[in-house]
Simulated assay, not measured.
Amino acid sequence: MTWFVWLLVASCTVYGLLFGYDTGAISGTLITIKGDLGPAELSDSQKEFITSATTLGALLGSCGRC
């Protein structure tokens, strides 16, 4: 095990923690916005899409130089 492997493991750990925190923050925010995004309240599928969009954003962000 080299220092580079330890650096990669530490980076992945921190990034995973931050990604989980971000997803949790967005899920918690959905409770407070209720009807602020339109005339009706958000449906369950719309809430699921907003929360899962963070994963799509991470995928697209990781391919920044693809």
Rank of each mutant, 00 (worst) to 15 (best):
L17N: 03
Y21K: 00
G64W: 15
I50A: 00
S43C: 03
I50V: 09
S45I: 15
V14A: 05
I31W: 11
A53I: 03
L60Q: 03
I50M: 02
T51E: 01
V9H: 08
G61T: 08
W3G: 07
D36T: 14
T13M: 04
V14E: 06
T23K: 04
K47C: 08
F49P: 05
G57Y: 02
S11F: 09
E48D: 05
Y15M: 07
G61S: 08
G64C: 10
F4H: 08
E48S: 07
T32E: 10
C66Q: 02
L56R: 05
T32N: 13
R65N: 06
Y15S: 11
T55A: 03
L59A: 11
T23A: 12
S45D: 09
M1Y: 04
P39I: 14
G28Q: 05
E48H: 00
A25I: 13
G38C: 07
T29P: 01
L7Q: 11
F4V: 13
D44L: 10
G64V: 12
Q46G: 01
L60T: 07
Q46T: 08
L42D: 04
T29L: 12
V14K: 04
S62T: 08
D36W: 15
F49Y: 11
S45M: 14
S62E: 07
A53T: 04
C66P: 00
A53E: 02
F4P: 02
G24R: 09
G64F: 12
V14Y: 02
T23P: 01
D36A: 15
G57E: 02
L17E: 06
G16S: 12
I33E: 01
S11Q: 09
L60I: 11
G24Y: 12
V5N: 13
I50H: 02
A10M: 05
S11L: 13
G28C: 07
D44V: 15
T54Y: 01
L18P: 07
Q46I: 02
C12F: 13
G28K: 05
L56M: 09
T2E: 14
L17M: 12
F49E: 10
E41F: 14
P39G: 06
E48M: 06
Q46V: 00
T29A: 15
A40Y: 15
P39M: 15
C66E: 04
F19L: 10
G38F: 06
